[in-house]
Write a protein that binds this DNA or RNA. Sequence first.
DNA 1: CTTCGATGAGACAAAGATGTCTCACATGGG
DNA 2: CCCATGTGAGACATCTTTGTCTCATCGAAG
Lengths: 192, 192
Amino acid sequence: MSHMGYGRLMTLDREQVLRSAAALLTRKSTATMDEVAKAAGIGRATLHRHFAGRDALVKALENLGLQEFEAALDAARLDEDTSEEGLRRLIAAVEPSAGLMSFLVNENQLFEGDEVNEGWNRADARVSAFFRRGQERGEFRIDLTPAWLTEALYGLVGTGAWSIQTGRVAAQDFQYMIVELLLGGARRSVEQ
Amino acid sequence: MSHMGYGRLMTLDREQVLRSAAALLTRKSTATMDEVAKAAGIGRATLHRHFAGRDALVKALENLGLQEFEAALDAARLDEDTSEEGLRRLIAAVEPSAGLMSFLVNENQLFEGDEVNEGWNRADARVSAFFRRGQERGEFRIDLTPAWLTEALYGLVGTGAWSIQTGRVAAQDFQYMIVELLLGGARRSVEQ
DNA sequence: CTTCGATGAGACAAAGATGTCTCACATGGG
DNA sequence: CCCATGTGAGACATCTTTGTCTCATCGAAG
């Protein structure tokens, strides 16, 4: 007996379908419901039984991505330790969800003026607050706004996921490339 | 009498249609031919007279974007001066085309395995060579690959354009935010 | 004024995607 | 064994977008 879970609980089926949908849509964001179904190894009818339509599927993916991102934010314990270590932990925790996040960030750009999932605002606020706290502690520069650093974080995570997908960057370098660029930039500093 | 130009020459009409199409598609990358036409202030039939179809329109946009990006690469004189100054000039030169480039970078992710416009390889090579040269001169860190720095540059330009579009970053800060993050990162360095 | 070329509006068919439905089948629990 | 639930395959109508075509109109050049 399988039964749709409420909130965080969900059937293994549903979860796996979402996983493969995420994997496919990350690569080809315009994939058809039929392609999504085939990628999940199920029929299109069954896909429609799980998700009322394409919108519902995307919304479910959005919830999954948000849930994972918030979990990563929790796992990173951003307020312990130095900001730098917190950022490293965040990027490490976010790596498994990077592809999905990349898809969702791009997808959000399509919802022109439409209502944005409230969850993004909460997540943005947490990331932004993290950068602000780092600035107040004197660990981050104050001439780059927290809002920009937040956007840049999303952008670099997405770019990193994409670069790995296309083979331009080695998968094992994901965390290092992002954290180092985000923290230290490309300039060779004097002390090293 | 208006006449389709060959190569770089193009009717003012055609140019302006492409401009407004770029502006619209940057915001809503799935816009309909009808929406594109309305945005350009022309009829859909006329739009089809200029561009055989949606593919042709996108390809024309790709050529326009590539042309502008290569012009920016030329204008930046990347091998004069320090690498840092070169990068600043490049970002400054690229700013007017940032929205279009953002659209094209995302669009490229849709052409799964299809053939990529050869122009992108040329542009990538120039940017990548610039970073490598900077590394050899000791101006850029060598632990971040030129390929990654190139991708990060594209990603940050796109993110910057998007951040401005949504109002999260002030338009006047475009160059500063990108160059400073790309060069120095978020970490507050000792010397300042 | 007349003519030629370009345009906008709209009709139209074709293609693609979506959402719904039916039906045969398989599998697991009773 | 029998039945119930979930499934895959496919048919089907519908909707959207696309690409083509026609036609009336407008404007500029002659």
